[in-house]
Amino acid sequence: MALTGAQLHDLLQRKWGRSYDLQIFRRGERLYLQVMWRYLGQGSFALSEDQYEARLERISAYLSELGVQQQVVDFLMSTREKPRIGRAVSFALEVE
């Protein structure tokens, strides 16, 4: 299953009603996806809409390369956590 940036954006909108920023980071041997508390339209958000969409496209392409797109979809649909100021929602990616 391919996951586009637009689909990722739609998932974030349906889940939380906001276009939250995403980050992928490595801690030791583990990779994590983080849903940050910053979002498109927020006064302090540093990206324009075009930059945000390009960012989600890059992230979705990377997730597809890793083969973890279904894990991400499942996590986003099932988590009860919500990003709050100073606290991101983190998800450990199970990369083979």
Results as ranks from 00 to 15, higher is better:
residue 76 L to V: 06
residue 35 V to N: 14
residue 84 R to G: 02
residue 62 Y to I: 05
residue 60 S to H: 02
residue 20 Y to W: 04
residue 83 P to S: 10
residue 40 L to V: 05
residue 40 L to M: 07
residue 24 I to C: 06
residue 86 G to A: 07
residue 23 Q to E: 15
residue 57 E to G: 00
residue 5 G to M: 04
residue 24 I to Q: 11
residue 85 I to C: 09
residue 80 R to P: 02
residue 67 G to V: 06
residue 86 G to V: 09
residue 76 L to A: 10
residue 30 R to D: 15
residue 74 D to G: 05
residue 31 L to Y: 10
residue 67 G to S: 10
residue 90 S to M: 14
residue 92 A to Y: 00
residue 73 V to N: 03
residue 67 G to H: 13
residue 76 L to N: 07
residue 2 A to Y: 09
residue 90 S to E: 12
residue 19 S to P: 03
residue 13 Q to P: 09
residue 85 I to N: 13
residue 59 I to D: 01
residue 50 D to V: 01
residue 39 Y to D: 06
residue 62 Y to L: 05
residue 7 Q to S: 13
residue 24 I to K: 01
residue 69 Q to A: 03
residue 10 D to V: 05
residue 67 G to T: 12
residue 69 Q to I: 08
residue 30 R to K: 13
residue 84 R to K: 08
residue 5 G to E: 00
residue 17 G to W: 09
residue 62 Y to Q: 15
residue 66 L to W: 11
residue 18 R to M: 03
residue 58 R to C: 00
residue 43 G to V: 10
residue 43 G to R: 10
residue 53 E to F: 01
residue 27 R to F: 12
residue 63 L to Y: 08
residue 28 G to K: 07
residue 11 L to K: 00
residue 24 I to Y: 04
residue 36 M to P: 14
residue 17 G to K: 01
residue 69 Q to E: 15
residue 68 V to D: 14
residue 42 Q to C: 03
residue 47 L to N: 12
residue 1 M to R: 03
residue 12 L to A: 06
residue 18 R to Y: 06
residue 82 K to C: 08
residue 53 E to H: 05
residue 56 L to G: 02
